[in-house]
Amino acid sequence: MKTENVTVYSPDRILKIGLVAVWKELFLSLLKSRELIWRLFLRDFSAKYRQSLLGVLWAVLNPLITVGIFVFLNKSGVFNIGSIDVPYPAFALVGLTVWALFATGLTVSSNSIVAAGAMVTKINFPKSSLVIASMGQAVVEFMVRLCLTIIVFVIYGIVPAWTAVLLPLAAIPVFLLTLGMGFFLALLTGIFRDTVHVVVLFTTFLLFLVPVLYPIPDSGLFAAVNAFNPLSHLIVGFRDLVFLGKLSSPAGYFGSCLFSLVVFLFFWRFFQIVEPKIAERV
């Protein structure tokens, strides 16, 4: 006879099992659901471009048009970013590449549980898989933009600093920060549908507040605000690795990495606490 897992359902079980067991359970369930996460990602990815003429081409067109608009605004003098040493399209694309990971990630992950619909209330499965799998779309967009960036670099004949090979590593804290916030926002959307609108507003606003499309000014209120914004540090750090070859503010950068990790771990655990209540609250 095969060995059978015994499952126990009781109120507040997750609060009673102790700290070590909590994290063990989190990692084990992540390990167990990796196949589900992959399937859900494939599902989202292949369903997204069905019944569309251009299909996957949209993944390339979107960032091209976004960058095109900012290049146009810059060229026509509407949007003045001050002086930079590199051609603006290359500068903007690097920023928009890492930005995509955050903005797309935040939008899709906060919507992931509500978008799953009846599945959440009818089937018992690890709901965190939905949030993690949705981040896959952001990773795809990130990689598409990265390829675009490489092409633009080749066209302009720009040679990036050697530290650019560390970019995949530098994407990790951005990913964790986004996923952490995504865990929280996905649950919040489950309770308050308003969250979706707030997230869209928030990311649009943030695109201009965070130095994605322009360098941080050396002084002034803006510089001060950005000094305390972990996302700014992560994006500037990402760009430094391409253009500068070193981090302009190592303390701020690594501090922000640590902050991202803490945000991720906290909300991952938070999600675990709330997970049993999702089906009845959504």
């Binding site: 059978e4 126990v8 359902y9 009781s10 109120p11 009818k122 049993p276």
Partner: peptide, 16 residues
């Protein structure tokens, strides 16, 4: 099925 958690009492399930 484990979709809802009980508010009182406990349920023990063996197997899938």
């Amino acid at each position: 099925n484990g979709i809802f958690m009980p508010d009182k009492g406990r349920i023990e399930i063996k197997g899938r």
